[in-house]
Computed example of a mutant assay.
Amino acid sequence: MGNPTRWATETGPEHSQWYVDRFRRMAADGVDLAGETRLLDTLVPPGSRILDAGCGTGRVGAQLAARGHTVVGVDADPVLVDAAHADHPGPRWLVADLTELDLAAAGEPEPFDAAVLAGNVMAFVAAGTEGAVLRRVAAHLRPDGVMAVGFGTDRGYPLADFDADVVGAGLRLEHRFATWDLRPWHDDADFAVTILRRPQM
């Protein structure tokens, strides 16, 4: 693993288990946790291969798998990946550092049709590694593959920096929204959902 993520350095030792318990409670209470999934499902054909990068407890990847997609989820936090294994059997869940992502070495050489980075993943990676994360995830997409990225605009990663890192990763920005349910983007929005494309070779 490379530099510790901000998830590890900016939260306490019990935070990961608190996060697991929180989403288990929300699911049990019937809270709608499928917004990201609905959007991703519209961007790809049925039976697509999808990378859930920064998968956390696996809620997005599991819902995508339930819709017929093949899902591989990766996260740097083993507590969250253990919860994904326990709560959502089916997809393949791996502990991996997104800045060094090499899924071919983990037995997943086939490129992905899409990738999703939900749940403020980009705001929790190690500071200064955001561009490397985008490059490594993009490297796992097939040409014309799509990536959906959502994070809070007040989380310490300015959108101008993100947009520059997008260009550096060889990706093309196609759409930006203020929510996962496609509310229009405006400059003072506190959340950004950006749809990116890996250009055709």
Rank of each mutant, 00 (worst) to 15 (best):
G145R: 10
G58Q: 04
M1H: 06
Q17H: 06
R155W: 01
G152F: 12
R135L: 15
M122L: 15
A106L: 14
F23L: 03
Q17W: 05
G54L: 08
G73P: 01
A138S: 15
T9R: 02
F177T: 13
R172I: 12
A192W: 06
L40M: 15
H140T: 13
A118K: 00
E100S: 11
Y19C: 01
N120A: 03
P109Y: 10
R49Y: 01
E100L: 15
A148G: 04
L101P: 03
D102R: 09
P13F: 09
V125K: 05
A34V: 14
F23I: 01
E10S: 11
V74Y: 10
D41E: 13
D165R: 01
A114W: 13
D165Q: 02
G30A: 04
D144L: 13
D97M: 07
V166G: 12
G12T: 10
W18N: 07
L80I: 05
E130L: 08
P46D: 05
V137Y: 02
T129C: 02
D29C: 12
V95L: 08
Y19W: 07
M147H: 06
V44A: 03
G30M: 10
A178Q: 00
R6Y: 03
E130I: 05
L182S: 12
T9C: 03
T5M: 00
D102P: 06
A132W: 00
A86W: 03
G68S: 13
A138T: 09
F112L: 08
G128R: 14
R197Q: 13
L40V: 15
H85L: 04
R135H: 13
L171N: 06
A65G: 09
L103E: 09
A76K: 02
R197A: 13
D32N: 14
D113Q: 07
L101D: 03
V74T: 14
S48V: 00
D32K: 14
C55N: 04
S16F: 08
G54C: 08
L64V: 04
Q17V: 08
T194A: 15
P91C: 05
A160H: 11
H85D: 11
G150K: 02
L159E: 00
